[in-house]
Design a protein around this nucleic acid. Sequence first.
DNA 1: CGACGAATTGAACCTATTCAAAGGGTGTGG
DNA 2: CCACACCCTTTGAATAGGTTCAATTCGTCG
Lengths: 249, 249
Amino acid sequence: MVQRRKSPIEIETTEPHLCSIDRRLEILGQAPFFKDLPEKDLRYINTLFKEIGVQPDEVVCFSGDPAERLFIVADGRIKLTRHTLSGRDVLLDILSTGEIFGSLSLLGDQTYPDTAIAQTQSCILQIGADDFHRILEKYPPVTLRVLETTSTRLHSAQERIRQLSALSVESRIAHILLLLSKKFGKVEKVGMLIQVPLSREDLAAMAGTTPESASRVMSQFQKAGLINSGRQWVAVIDQAGLLQITESE
Amino acid sequence: MVQRRKSPIEIETTEPHLCSIDRRLEILGQAPFFKDLPEKDLRYINTLFKEIGVQPDEVVCFSGDPAERLFIVADGRIKLTRHTLSGRDVLLDILSTGEIFGSLSLLGDQTYPDTAIAQTQSCILQIGADDFHRILEKYPPVTLRVLETTSTRLHSAQERIRQLSALSVESRIAHILLLLSKKFGKVEKVGMLIQVPLSREDLAAMAGTTPESASRVMSQFQKAGLINSGRQWVAVIDQAGLLQITESE
DNA sequence: CGACGAATTGAACCTATTCAAAGGGTGTGG
DNA sequence: CCACACCCTTTGAATAGGTTCAATTCGTCG
């Protein structure tokens, strides 16, 4: 029972063509927005979505392009990024099953605010902005849910602004590790494993620093026994320890 | 016709008791959320709001307190801030007439995400979270508008994350000056005057830096003829020049 | 096993912070 | 109406935290 691959990460990817009707209904039903809708309505909504499969590093939508569609992650991991002229990109969020992205602004001639890149093989449900707008008009409770989600994201974003403004790289990375382990953590032998292929570069782009600095901090955390990490994966061992670093400065 | 005060700032503050019914209806009608509602509904909604007057530096709500109310700025300027243990606070936004803050999360036992402090004498309309929730349920288009607003703010917040992560202090301050002049700018003799009492400390808290660094950058901008500035006020002279600095690094 | 890409580590450099002191506008009280 | 005190602002010099560039090591996959 020897494991050939040292990387403990294992994302259960549904092959694009395996996003069956049943699976799609299940996913839509799990999405916070549609949770309470009767199956009849879910089935109708389902017909409005078209599914697409994407490979790792494939771009789903480009920041700046006309925002014609809205997407829901059916399976896999999608990175929301924003570019800079200096080439130093920023990783805003990593999305998973049931999460929404794309054109949330219901206005006319808007553009996508972020670039969305697949981090793993993923299945995505897409819908025209108009159709989605129609859903919102037809099912007011859905709008409330979307508002809730957006509001929560706004608060996380503002929290991140606070951290970028006031905390050290060390604290920010500690915080990010805790967030990711809460969102993607699975208990494994190596610790609370973050089920996302996560490079030092990704971490750096989330923390607003360089891969080298991220690496230094991670080495330090590893020496202190707070985490366990290898190439493209991270597991949290001592949550309390990281939490302490979080606001230490 | 000699001006006693050197500061060119002049915020037209409505005295709290001057927020008459007519004025309140006008303000509510101007707020993006209620813009298209018929007067009858506006009058009803108006009865749900209670008005309060606040003095400069007075706190409207504390981050962390139970989020029972939602507020709309009727008149004046309200700062949205977030604290850090290190004492270095972050200034998230400056709100003006018609803007919303407080408990946007429609969930149960939530707390205010930000502390709201009056920057000038202000008049604020407040409403119970429950009542507001009822408005949203009764008038679905209002929910859509609130969603739009929230979504726009989310994108601004993410843009700020990008800047904090990738740009220099100089670029960030240039960007903030442009944003503020777009939002609060009035053409005056001194240039495009930002109609907000704005200290170096405020600027620093918006840019995620120290008052000293902000001061250095501002001096530099002034020498370069890009801005005009004094104690607690700033006017933009050369927008194009600032724009160039914005993404220069 | 070999090769590629990721991660680590070191050293020089630089931006921004910190601490300290001096200068200047604003408003208050005599 | 002037003078004083307060606070904001400016500027300087030393320091620290983070970046950059480069070289090396290590892990993973073909």
